Amino acid sequence: MAENDDTFEVAAVPHVIDRLRAVGLSGDRIQQHFHAAPIRLDGQQVADLDQPAPAASRLMIDPS
């Protein structure tokens, strides 16, 4: 941030797919889970892997 600049940077919020990749799942494996069993974010079924998933939210894959 410049000395006379009143703007600030907003930290990017990760998406569901980003969080799943961060725990080591491949893109193919994520797609398999997405189509085989519900992925839930704070208890709500995920309909779009690109939806925001803040770090404080709970992300889980239901057992199939």
Rank of each mutant, 00 (worst) to 15 (best):
F34P: 03
P38M: 03
A55L: 13
H33I: 01
S26Y: 02
I30D: 01
A36K: 15
G24W: 06
A55M: 11
M1D: 08
A47P: 05
S64P: 15
P52C: 11
H35N: 09
P63H: 11
H33V: 05
H15Q: 14
H35D: 12
Q51V: 10
Q51W: 10
G43M: 06
G43S: 04
D50K: 14
A2C: 07
P38T: 06
L41P: 00
V16L: 01
D18W: 00
D5I: 07
L41S: 03
D48T: 11
I17A: 02
D42G: 11
P63T: 12
L59E: 04
Q31R: 15
V16M: 01
D48W: 11
R21V: 01
D28S: 14
D50I: 07
A2S: 12
N4I: 08
G27H: 09
A47S: 15
D48L: 10
G27Y: 03
L59C: 08
I39V: 13
R40L: 15
G27C: 06
P52W: 09
Q51M: 15
D18P: 04
E9F: 05
D18M: 02
L25M: 15
R40E: 09
V23E: 11
Q31M: 09
R29F: 03
H15G: 02
A56S: 07
M1R: 12
R29N: 09
Q32H: 13
Q45V: 13
D28K: 15
A37V: 04
V23D: 05
L41Y: 05
G43V: 04
G27W: 02
M1C: 10
A47N: 14
E3Y: 15
F34Q: 03
V13K: 03
S57K: 06
S26Q: 03
V16W: 00
V23T: 14
D50W: 08
V46S: 00
G24S: 13
R21A: 07
G27A: 10
A55V: 12
M60Y: 08
D62Q: 14
V23Y: 03
Q51K: 14
E9R: 07
Q31C: 03
A55T: 12
N4Y: 09
V13P: 01
P54L: 05
A22W: 05
Q44V: 13
G43E: 02
A11E: 11
F8V: 12
A37W: 03
Q31I: 02
R29K: 14
A55Q: 12
I17K: 02
R40G: 08
F34K: 09
D48S: 13
I30W: 05
V13G: 03
Q51S: 14
A12R: 14
P14C: 08
A2M: 09
D62L: 14
Q45F: 01
A2L: 10
G43R: 05
Q45A: 12
A56P: 01
A37L: 06
R19C: 06
A55G: 02
D5E: 13
A11Q: 10
F34T: 05
S26V: 04
I30L: 02
D48K: 12
I30Q: 01
A22H: 04
A22G: 06
L41D: 01
M1F: 11
D50C: 06
I39E: 00
L49V: 05
D5R: 15
A36I: 05
M1P: 09
